[in-house]
């Protein structure tokens, strides 16, 4: 009942986010809000929505960073939601047991009926993945779309998180990271998926795929740095070509 599951869960469900293809469109964030505001965490309140300082509860947010300088500089759109950490500090600090990590699939959830809104879990989470709903007085967070992924009222193919289903660039992948054969595990393996802030020792389940090398990559193996002028000049080349 308290703390983290004693044994690692058999399944480790999570997301793999591809920073190489995320174009920063915010679709996942808005669709997440749309799904969840009527779902498990209903509602995701928006305060002062049409006034000077609107502020809403979002379970997923897209940041934009610039990285490096000059030729090797790049811009990276960076979506972030709960990483469903294996060693989740948000769970262990929770005084009520409202925060818990499911022993069967590793999903970290808040039980709103138990939450007292002490906010301590949001202090403990290094990633800013907890969202306090002032109006409801409880903590909210990414549920990994618990009410979609197992939802028997949905077609099998739709049983993926809302953010994954909606992402136009397919930059978000969902699956079981405990299974080395899963699509997500293979992506992590092939693309060098990494953890955010490993120094926090949270062992996030979600992984990020790095942007791929820029610039140098040619049109395909074998293209040159530059073209050689046609022998004898273009017109001679044309003659040769046409007389072939």
């Amino acid at each position: 009942m308290t703390g983290l599951p004693t044994a690692p869960s058999e399944k480790r469900l999570g997301l793999v986010i591809d920073l190489d293809t995320c174009v920063g469109c915010h679709a996942c964030a808005v669709n997440c809000k749309e799904w969840n505001t009527g779902g498990y965490h209903a509602p995701l309140t928006d305060e002062r929505p049409y006034d000077t300082d609107p502020s809403g509860v979002w379970l997923n947010r897209i940041h934009t960073f610039e990285v490096g300088e000059g030729e090797s500089g790049r811009l990276v759109h960076f979506p972030k939601s709960c990483l469903h950490c294996e060693d989740a500090p948000c769970v262990t600090v929770c005084p009520t047991g409202a925060s818990y990590k499911r022993s069967e699939d590793g999903i970290v959830l808040v039980d709103e009926d138990m939450c007292i809104g002490c906010k301590l879990c949001s202090w403990a989470c290094p990633y800013g993945a907890r969202e306090y709903d002032q109006d409801a007085g409880v903590m909210k967070k990414c549920t990994l779309c618990i009410d979609r992924i197992y939802n028997e009222n949905l077609d099998e193919i739709d049983r993926v998180p809302a953010c994954v289903a909606t992402c136009p660039a397919s930059a978000r992948h969902f699956g079981d990271l405990a299974d080395p054969q899963s699509h997500v595990s293979r992506l992590v393996e092939a693309r060098g998926g990494f953890d955010l802030m490993p120094e926090m020792e949270t062992q996030p389940v979600n992984k990020y795929l790095p942007p791929r090398a820029k610039g140098g990559q040619a049109g395909g193996p074998g293209s040159d740095d530059k073209l050689m002028p046609a022998a004898g000049g273009f017109l001679a080349w044309l003659d040769r070509t046409l007389s072939d």
Binding site: A42, T45, P49
Partner: peptide
Amino acid sequence: RPSILRIGADVTDS
């Protein structure tokens, strides 16, 4: 203008 929006609160069973 509403000062607060609780979209979905009324359409969920919970």
